[in-house]
Amino acid sequence: MTDHRLSTRIMRSRRAVFGVAVLGTLALVAIFADVFAREAPIARSSAHGFELLPENAASPPDAGFELRAPIRYGPSTIASTPFTKPSLSHPLGTDRDGRDVLARLVHGARIAVGAGFVVALLGVLGGGIAGAFASQYTRRLGPTLERVAQAVDAFPALIVVALFRAMEGSSTVSVVVGATIVQWASVARLVRTELHRLGAEDFVLAARALGATKTRILVRHLLPHLGPSLVSSAALGLSAVVMLEATLSFLGLGPPVGGASWGEMLAEGARHPDQTPLFVVPAVALSLTIGAAYLFAEGLREAVDPVTLRVRDSS
């Protein structure tokens, strides 16, 4: 007997749970990167009380108690001599410029995962609205949207995002804007196709027969069914953006992103093949992120796919 509650089915998928755990951890690392790796103290206890300090706060000689990050280096801090072997003070060693690899890895999550999450969210929002509008409200717009989405899909995302980076300079915003422009199309196509399929289902016909408006059918009956597909699509979008940003930084397309980027770290590692950790660390981080997103999407799809459920039931 299959438990038909979606949350239970998702929780039973080990892939989905693994994906959520890894992506959630990476999201926390990205959000609190400054707490994990920072040269300046995070907070200080003084006569005025306990105060949070800005990123470039200096440490006076008579400073009282200071709360410091576990990794006491920023992504650009020259922490030691170049190519230091892993040690207690630099668990993953240092790079060519003597910067701490672990600190760069933590801050790199900000660009990779941060940009990935934002683009996935914007792509789902933009693509979802466009797909839903084209499917529900206009008949002519549907084929037009299909053609536009096909054209956008055909654009080499790498070039579009590289141009945005060249336009906006070294900012993560340029990666987000460029990647969103190419990411929304696949979501819009997915939404349109799914809504088209769901539109022929009995429960939609019943709602229509009872006099429900298009908007009510869309919001109350169709959108809840789209949730898993959209989340799955967003997860795959996230992995695509992480790979895209890494590829751009690896190739050096456009100006370098401020802070640290896993793609830049990977490129540096590839240039120094004798320094194994330099190459392995960003490669593992990228693979873990992309793999987790892929497994989450797979697990989610399997949890809601009627065919999988039927096969599972029959076995």
Partner: peptide
């Protein structure tokens, strides 16, 4: 298959060169 998908192509290329 998932591992190969998740690994950046540059990584696979460098490993092949090694």
């Amino acid at each position: 298959v998932v591992t190969l998908h998740a690994l950046p192509s540059a990584t696979v290329a460098v490993v092949c060169l090694w």
